[in-house]
Simulated scan of single mutants.
Amino acid sequence: MARIVRFHRHGGPEVLRIEEVEVPQPGPGEVRIRVKALGLNRAEALLRQGRYIETAVLPSGLGLEAAGSVEAIGAGVEGFALGDAVSIIPPRSMVRWPAHGEVILFPADLVVKHPASLDWPAAAALWMQYLTAYGALIDIAKLGQGDVVVITAASSSVGLAAIEIANRVGARPIAVTRSSSKAQALLDHGAAAVIASEEEDLEARLAELAGPQGVRVVFDPIGGPLFVPLTAAMARGGILIEYGGLSPEPTPFPLFAVLSKSLTLRGYLVHEILGDPTRLEAAKAFILDGVKEGAFRPVIARIFAFDEIVEAHRFLESNQQFGKIVVTL
């Protein structure tokens, strides 16, 4: 028997329960993992609330990220040994492959032996943020030397990963956050400049910081009214990649900016990378190289104990964090 996180109805963090279930032996192509740490993401909160792109079958498990040691290996699985330290690539379905529990079963092709330089919390915080940022900035936008990239929600784990990726390829990351309270931390993390969107004129500051070349890439999970100043500051032929919809307000279509500057507005989910083995292998190689060379260092906002999973979700929804929330076992 093992304890896992489940919910029997949709709602706030209080609907989460830790329940004992039997975890079977791994089937062909599967690995059973004794979990040491879990990473929390907005997606888990949305699934719990009934607002995610995937529909939960109640009672439902949840979770996209975990790290631990290999406990059992199914038939046909090669490249792993009992006791190996591993982390998991986020599955395309967390209802089918929930990661938040003491013991989990996962397809072997989503299990990675991560660099020894990562401790359990960092390993559990690695894949979702860097895969999401890599897929948008490198795979799709082809971000490169000298490009100006605007990263909104910059203090999120994905935003911080995007700053590191931009610096690694020689681009210039401009971080956008709501208030100036996190500005210095973002500068320390590698942002070339920081704009507090609730305290400054976003369009004017972007025009000032980007200069005559303009912003070639925007990486945004918010939407809403921000589309107007963001696209106004973009360069001809620029691309805005939208990977979320956090704003409760309608998102206007900036017709004049799109037409006059031949802009691309592109919706994106990390599932594009996860569902393509060739693109996923390229992403894994890029990320692992960055970790090994010290360019990528997951930022941990706060660590909770497994029994504090409800409190961890409450903190996730508070928007106070700088980086990833991790739960340890």
Rank of each mutant, 00 (worst) to 15 (best):
V77P: 10
P28C: 04
R92C: 00
R48C: 07
P98G: 02
P252V: 01
A305V: 09
I287V: 15
L118G: 00
F106I: 12
N319W: 10
D119Y: 07
G74M: 09
N41P: 12
V103R: 11
G79T: 08
L38K: 00
I53S: 14
G237W: 04
V57Q: 14
V299P: 05
P90D: 04
A183Q: 09
G11I: 08
Q320I: 02
V5S: 03
R9H: 13
K182D: 10
L274Q: 11
P254K: 07
R314I: 05
I174T: 03
L110I: 14
L202M: 13
G135D: 05
K142F: 07
V35Y: 04
V169N: 06
V77Q: 06
I309S: 04
V299C: 02
L280V: 02
I195K: 01
S181R: 14
E30G: 00
P252K: 10
T132W: 03
H189Y: 12
G237T: 09
V35N: 03
R314W: 06
D220C: 07
L274K: 01
F106A: 15
K284A: 06
K292V: 10
Q213G: 12
I174N: 01
F7I: 08
P248W: 13
E308D: 15
V95T: 13
Q184P: 05
K36V: 07
D220I: 04
Q213F: 04
Q49A: 15
G50K: 07
E71R: 02
L143I: 13
E308A: 11
R314T: 05
N319G: 05
E308R: 12
V112N: 02
L202Q: 05
A72N: 13
H313I: 12
L62P: 03
P26I: 10
A45N: 12
E242W: 05
P13G: 01
V217Y: 01
G294M: 07
E14H: 09
G76V: 08
E54V: 15
S260N: 14
H8K: 15
E203F: 03
L160I: 10
V169W: 10
M128V: 05
E78L: 11
A191L: 07
T55L: 10
L329E: 07
D139F: 08
W127H: 13
G245H: 13
G244R: 00
P225M: 10
S318M: 07
S117F: 06
P254F: 07
A204V: 06
A133R: 03
I4A: 04
L143F: 09
G61Q: 02
S247G: 00
F219M: 04
V70H: 00
A72R: 13
G323L: 06
Y130K: 01
P121V: 07
G211C: 07
I53W: 13
A81G: 12
A166E: 02
A37H: 08
P221H: 05
M128R: 02
V35M: 09
A161Q: 03
P298A: 09
D276H: 09
P252A: 08
G223E: 08
L126Q: 04
I33L: 00
V270P: 01
G144D: 06
D139C: 00
K324D: 03
V86G: 01
R6D: 03
V258K: 03
